[in-house]
Nucleic acid binder design. Structure first.
Lengths: 206, 206
DNA sequence: CCCCTAAGCGGGGTAAAGTCCGCTTAGGTC
DNA sequence: GACCTAAGCGGACTTTACCCCGCTTAGGGG
């Protein structure tokens, strides 16, 4: 039930690309606030209904742009060299992934913020790729009596929350200082949580 | 510069109370979606401008209601019995606080979600009380080479994020099962992070 | 008791998200 | 190549958050 039931009509795909490109244009020209549905529709020469059909909501557009930007990072994780790619011990991969994710979110900061939306959600929430990857790595680590799924969610929020709630934004592709701090914090947290793979004596369990 | 520069005029205070009460009414009657600014203004017999002046935004209203509901919890933390109140070791207090916060957010789930708003924010973000309390407790724990301020932010998100992104909502004041899971997860995380107050050997530091 | 002024108030105005539904068209079938 | 149908499309419409700015009034000083 998951093999792209209908492969998306050719014109639809073309329009998606067009909208994505136009969205990037508007974004580059005037920032995320200037990216409105009306403007995007007009600029791309399509109807507003089409925009909503493709992306569901305003936040959806930002998510789509973000996902697209993330594509190369995905590749590095799946097939690149360690420690980001396969081959390194899972804890190292987890730390490396967090660092990469932090840097990615720092560039793309404005887009990432806009991709979060308060209003509008209903489904049981499909966890984002970030959480899924963290979950997979956690499973490879022997954590004694942990609720891995929950822990993955907790760590995902710990990783992304502080960064996305800062109003900061780096002007260029070089944002050296603040990113380093988050990377160090992530490393610290992961090392603490995964410190000894051997089970602690479990002092008591009421 | 922080001693309530102007103590708020009497009519303003009265209107704030009125609006808060009316908001609760609407909330109880028809849920958070039905609480619109127009409706709140009309129902309370005030102007729309007044509503915005008092609360700043739609999300502000939910925050105000939430803060008000939290007041009794605040008291227990400041002056109540341990481990929630003062007197217990900080790690125990931290675990107890998380449990209490989880239960609080589970009741109030709908309001808490509505209090988060994507749009609208500009200041350097004043950290919420939850984060401040966690930070204080962390400072009392001897964490070797930790960035306490950042760690407090991370833990706050780890605590609240997973809960607030679930669509669930308990019908009554009794939501036994799911809350327990979050409480256990929080306890696990805190115990891991604060496990041994003695510094680990620090394998290397590039 | 009157004045004065800054805080408070009102509600019409604007802009933007999201919905609806009838029309159009891609692309498979015979 | 004609037909058929489901997916796609458009853009007017509705709803709502939030802004603006002239009017009102609380409440302190003279």
């Amino acid at each position: 039930m998951w093999g792209t039931p209908q492969p998306e009509r050719a014109d639809a795909a073309r329009n998606r690309q067009l909208l994505l490109a136009t969205a990037r244009e508007l974004l580059a020209e005037a920032g995320s606030d200037a990216l409105t549905m009306d403007r995007l529709a007009e600029r791309s020469g399509l109807g507003k209904g089409t925009v909503f059909r493709r992306f569901g909501s305003r936040a959806g557009i930002f998510q789509a742009v973000l996902d697209d930007n993330e594509r190369t990072l995905q590749q590095e994780i799946l097939t690149g060299p360690p420690p980001l790619g396969p081959g390194a011990p899972p804890v190292d991969r987890l730390i490396a992934y967090g660092s990469a994710r932090i840097r990615f979110l720092a560039q793309n900061h404005e887009i990432a913020r806009a991709a979060i939306d308060g209003r509008k959600q209903g489904g049981p929430r499909r966890p984002p790729l970030s959480e899924i990857h963290i979950r997979i790595l956690l499973r490879e680590i022997e954590l004694p009596r942990a609720d891995i799924d929950l822990l993955a969610g907790q760590l995902t929020f710990a990783l992304e929350g502080p960064l996305l709630n800062q109003p900061f934004q780096s002007p260029g592709p070089n944002s050296p200082a603040p990113t380093k701090r988050f990377e160090a914090g992530w490393r610290y947290l992961v090392e603490r949580v995964c410190s000894d793979a051997g089970a602690p004596p479990a002092p008591d369990d009421a």
